[in-house]
Each structure stands twice: as C-alpha cells, then as structure tokens.
Amino acid sequence: MNIFRLAGDMTHLMSVLVLLLKIHTIKSCAGKSYPCSLCFILLESSSGISLKTQELYALVFATRYLDIFTDFISVYNTIMKLIFLGSSFSIVWYIRRHKIVRRSYDKDQDTFRHFFLVLPCLLLALIINEKFTFKEVLWTFSLYLEAVAILPQLILLQRTRNIDNLTGQYVFLLGAYRALYILNWIYRYFTEPHYVHWITWISGLVQTLLYADFFYYYFSSLKNNVKLKLPA
C-alpha cells in the first residue's frame, strides 16, 4: 500500500459518503410536514444523480470483487470491498424503490442506454484480457465498464440546469480517485519489479480523461465562485 493508493481509496470512499449524504438529505427533507426552502428546492429539482451510472457501478463492483470470499488479501481490502458493494447496491435500491428518494430521480433526463456500454465492454473483455478464465474475463470487464460508467452521469449533468454542490462534489471525487490510482500505478511501476498491467493502466487513463472537461468546469466554477454548469 502506498500513499497514492490510500488517498485514492479514501477519495473513492468520500464520493460514496457524499452520495449517501445527499440521499439522506432528500429523505430527511421530505419527511418534514412543511418543506423547508432547501427541501422544496431539493424535491422540486431533480437530484441530478444518474441511476444508470449507479447501476453500472454496482455491476462493476459485483464483477470485480468475485474473489472477495476466495482470496483474502487484508482486512482493509475486504472491508473496503464490502463498503463499495453494499453502498452501490443500496444506492440503486434507494433511487429505484425508496418512496421519497425515487421522486427526486428524473428518469426522463437519465436516458443513456447503458446497455450499449455493457455489451462492448463484455466483448472487449472476451478478446483482450490477461487470462481467458471466468474470473479474469469478468474482472477485465469490470475495468472496461468502470472506465465508461460515468458517461450517463456526465450527460445528465449537461442536461441538469442547476447542479447542486453535493452532486458536483460526488462526480469530482469519483474522478479524482482514479487519477490518484494512476499515481499509485506509476509509483508501483518504479518500486516493484515486474509490476506491469497495461489493461488496468489504459482503462484507468481513459476513465480519468473522460473527466477532463468536468474537472475544467469544476475548477473554473470554484475559482470564479460561480455555480457549476456544464455546456450542453
């Protein structure tokens, strides 16, 4: 474990916590008998969260952590896997099933057909992988899928008029975690012999590059202290 990877995992954990906080806010808001002003805004505007991206991430974790009970690496590793699995599936459940949270989900805007991402990633994983075994192909599939999983969310943000802070921070942290992982891979490449994993590195690089324009608008909105807005 190195500082870049730890920072990356903590950033990823933070993104999940921000999303859970947002869902909690929506839940507690609507619970009130009289909607406070913030609640009113929250309930009126869509949450800006893409259910499609959340479903893709649940699939990413389900296919990446197949070895959670067969290969024990460390307590930290197992706990983090359980957190990511548990949070991603519960977030999908909340947005799909929770009587209050689902109201803040704007399915008319979140129209990205994520099936068009799943199939090519699966085909690519069947062709380009490090070992043609069930677990390895699904693990590779999870890397390719994670690289593009953010697309429905980024497209939804372009369609969302006012992106609220928590949603912006969520996407930022999700992009930053993989950027930190790239530093981790560089560090491990120079410190560990034979540490070469092109598939992981290229997928991680593509994933981070997809956030490039978001990062640009996110930092300029911070610098100019204006509301985050993505051009359509």
Binding site: D71, I73, N77, M80, W139, N184, H197
Partner: peptide, 10 residues
C-alpha cells in the same frame, strides 16, 4: 504469486 499481487487493488 503474480496472480495474487495483481488483485490487491480495489
């Protein structure tokens, strides 16, 4: 082994 090392990341 090699396999083990590769999968130590989340």
């Amino acid at each position: 082994d090699e396999e083990q090392v590769m999968k130590d990341e989340l």
